[in-house]
């Protein structure tokens, strides 16, 4: 097997890296791929709780990288989705135990076992970031439509390009109402400024918060706009590169949907 290693990164914290890693991982597994999501946020692990696997942890990434356990022992099987695995970060170990070259070797191993390896990068551009990008060939850069977030994305894209890692952009937490009345950067604005390939757009969706509370997969929620957006992004990652990018819109009212009153935009 020759899997793909993709790092999910952003520069700025709290923009949705962990949410996206969990969601794209589960969506790809639902597409029938064998997937592992890896929490690279050593000391601040979160991917396990987002996936609802926090009480199944025995071994962690550091154990697997340093050879304290086998790869198969560190990869926790998902409760609901077949072919989906999580390698959790360690909560206690010192970050400096692993370095970029160790991660690079480890990613090669993972690539032999899985179709997709998604790395959930910590915020910032320090050592943890360096470790996370070391073994990756592609990157999903996440930003929200805010000045500070886009600026940090620009910085990260520059670093990725200098390491020959191909970045693609995902804009998260889009609020269509604000975009439509001119109070939020549109995805066109963001792409215009960053000049990078767009992978997908995800709206702000309170169901994300609810699923995260429950430790459920947002992509299994048919009525979630964000969940559906993640599924389309996963399809695009999984070979359907031409699948059109859906732009989040305000929910049309019943009458507008029927097209009886008012003209369509």
């Amino acid at each position: 097997m020759e899997g793909k290693v993709i790092v999910v990164t952003s520069g700025k914290g709290g923009v949705g890296k962990t949410t996206a890693t969990a969601s794209l991982g589960s969506a790809l597994a639902l597409e029938g791929k064998k997937v592992v999501v890896v929490d690279m946020d050593i000391g601040l692990r979160n991917l396990d709780v987002v996936m609802g696997l926090e009480n199944r942890i025995v071994f962690n990434l550091i154990d697997a990288v340093t050879g304290k356990c086998k790869l198969q022992q560190a990869a926790i099987k998902d409760r609901k989705i077949d072919n989906l695995f999580l390698i959790p970060a360690s909560q206690s170990d010192n970050k400096s135990i692993i370095n970029a070259s160790a991660m690079e070797r480890f990613c090669k191993k993972l690539r032999n076992e899985f179709d997709f390896v998604l790395l959930d990068c910590p915020a910032g551009i320090e050592q943890g970031f360096e470790n996370a990008i070391a073994g990756a060939e592609e990157a999903i850069v996440i930003c929200t439509p805010e000045v500070s977030s886009v600026r940090d994305a620009d910085r990260v894209i520059g670093i990725l390009l200098s390491r020959s890692i191909v970045p693609r952009l995902m804009v998260n937490r889009i609020v269509p109402q604000l975009v439509e009345r001119g109070d939020m950067l549109s995805h066109e604005d963001v792409v215009d400024v960053l000049s990078v390939d767009l992978l997908g757009l995800v709206p702000m969706d309170e169901l994300v918060v609810i699923s995260t509370n429950m430790g459920n997969h947002i992509v299994m929620q048919k009525d979630s706009m964000a969940g559906q957006a993640f599924r389309r992004i996963a399809m695009r990652l999984n070979g359907q590169a031409d699948l059109p990018i859906e732009v989040p819109r305000t929910q049309k009212s019943f009458w507008k949907k029927l097209g009886i009153f008012g003209k369509k935009k």
Binding site: V147, R151, R181, G182, D183, L185, D189, V193
Partner: peptide
Amino acid sequence: SSKDKAKKRL
């Protein structure tokens, strides 16, 4: 609009 301003600043 506030987003035009945001884009310029960005």
